[in-house]
Amino acid sequence: MNRRQSKVLRTLARLVIRLWQMRRVLLLVVPYLFLFGWLFAAGSRMDVRPGELYGVTDEPAWGSPDADHWFGTTVNGADLFELSRLAMATSVSVAVVSVSFGIALALLVTMLFVFDPGEKRFELPNVVGQSGFLLPSFVVLLVLTGGSGGSLGVAILGLILVIAFHLCPVLTTWFQEGEDGFDIVAGYALGLSRREIVMNRILPKILRRLVGVFATYVPVVVLVEMALSFLGFTGDRLSCGAMIAYGQGLIIEAPWMAIYPGLMATAVVLVLSLLGWRVSSAMRTGPLPRLF
């Protein structure tokens, strides 16, 4: 006996099928959502100063790790686990903003040279890149943030410039490699303009790979941002780097205050790195991976 399925059931079935088709993408996206959701569930308070948390008083209220406070408590009795989570949320936010703008800037700069029909169109960015690599990026960031008095805005600006500088040679190489394909030669033979070829054939492949670049760069930038805050060059702002730096002064009385923020930072960077490598390899070429 044939019965017509209800509209709700049909929609549900279609949704399940669609989710099944998207399972590989979801396997990559869902862990990111969980991680970001968990990090940002602690809130986004920018008014917490590490100096207040680690400044030793006559009667410090700190406590070593126990069942209630997994990472222990700070001088004023604040939970170190929640503070570390808050600090990592800030670091990840800084990294996401810096990498996004860095990639956009690199793409913009590269696109200035891509449409040039000359054979040596990438000569200038390549020469600048080779000279600039003699000066380590961390040195550039250090001088920029330290000289300007140490503020988060300057640190983000420096990170954006450094990321764009690193990415420009990579993008030029990708554009050059993209122009070597048979389909591109065929496109020229068929009379397509350079603009059409770049915009419709080469650029989509590069944009796809940029998602992987973003995922790979974020953990690296998180580490760099923490290193800068460890050195005290991103202002008096809560960051795991700053917490470890302040905790160094208390390694005899309260060693957990230097140990556990670093543990949280390592865990978050590790998860971001693993996901980044996976996303990068998935986005490079071909279909998304079968197994996560």
């Binding site: 670093g262 790195s273 490598w277």
Partner: peptide, 17 residues
């Protein structure tokens, strides 16, 4: 690669502790 995920400055502080 896994060891590279550990912030280097934290590692040396751990060694000091």
């Amino acid at each position: 690669s896994l060891f590279a995920c550990v912030p280097g400055f934290w590692f040396v502080v751990l060694v000091a502790i």
